[in-house]
């Protein structure tokens, strides 16, 4: 589904990803771990098409299509979703209106009929309930005055509504207490299907106790230095990242 080959990318003239390779098949959950500055967020931004990032080498294919040639919104239309590490506040933009606009923009792009208001309301309320997100937050402006946990829940709510084929969750666990982490993990697990893939970007093994990955990759210095199963995450938790860097250097 997603195939990244020898990807070089960076920002402000600085190359951060240095020949990254990754293959994600339908239905798989991949965890990408790594120390600060290893390129985890750069990867998520490059995949989502954020302005300012420059790809200097390699390729990314999504269902065989050149992903990097598509505009940000076109990537969303193809089914790519980025759950942000720091979801921004949108003053004056109503949360419900925003989600409905987003859903309908995607449906229009795919040639599907728009969702009617009643059906939309019913669904969004149902999904919010699953995520234990206060219904009042749907009526507020997007993320405005939301707590850290509420913002992350709102991200997963959008994922649930947009039903992406590939969800990239960038440090969704950061800043969450244990209860919020459980709710969000349950939400993500409920969205696992045989044809939906998920990339979890995280610092800590903690999240992986709740969302079990099929593959774990260690990103250091813009490259994946080691891949394994979920046991690799436990090993990292125990030993840190240092030994992988040393092994690679040796």
């Amino acid at each position: 589904m997603l195939s990244i080959k020898d990807l070089y990318a960076g920002i402000d003239g600085k190359t951060i990803l240095q020949g990254l390779n990754l293959e994600v098949a339908p239905g798989e959950v991949h965890a990408i771990m790594g120390p600060n500055g290893s390129g985890k967020s750069t990867l998520s931004h490059v995949l989502a098409g954020r302005d300012g990032y420059e790809v200097t080498g390699g390729q990314v294919r999504f269902d065989g299509e050149d992903l990097l040639a598509l505009a940000t919104e076109e990537r969303a239309h193809r089914g790519i979703f980025l759950g942000m590490q720091y979801p921004v506040e949108l003053p004056g933009v109503n949360n419900m209106t925003f989600m409905r606009e987003a859903m309908n923009a995607n449906r229009r792009a795919r040639g599907e009929p728009e969702l009617d208001a009643v059906a939309f309301m019913k669904r969004v309320k149902e999904e919010a309930r699953h995520l234990k997100l206060d219904e009042q937050l749907l009526k507020r402006n997007v993320n405005s005055g939301f707590s850290g946990g509420e913002k992350k829940r709102n991200e997963i709510l959008q994922m649930a509504m947009l039903e992406p084929r590939l969800a990239i969750l960038d440090e969704t666990d950061s800043g969450l207490d244990i209860d919020a982490l459980r709710v969000i993990s349950d939400g993500v697990n409920a969205l696992r299907t045989p044809d939906r893939s998920i990339i979890l970007i995280t610092h800590y093994q903690r999240l992986l106790e709740y969302i079990q990955p099929d593959h774990v990759h260690v990103l250091v210095g813009g490259r994946i230095l080691r891949s394994g199963d979920k046991d690799l995450a436990l090993e990292l938790e125990e030993k840190g990242y240092g030994w992988i860097e040393e092994e690679a250097a040796a």
Partner: peptide
Amino acid sequence: FYLRSRGIDT
């Protein structure tokens, strides 16, 4: 960017 990443055009 946030809005575009959800499929809404510029």
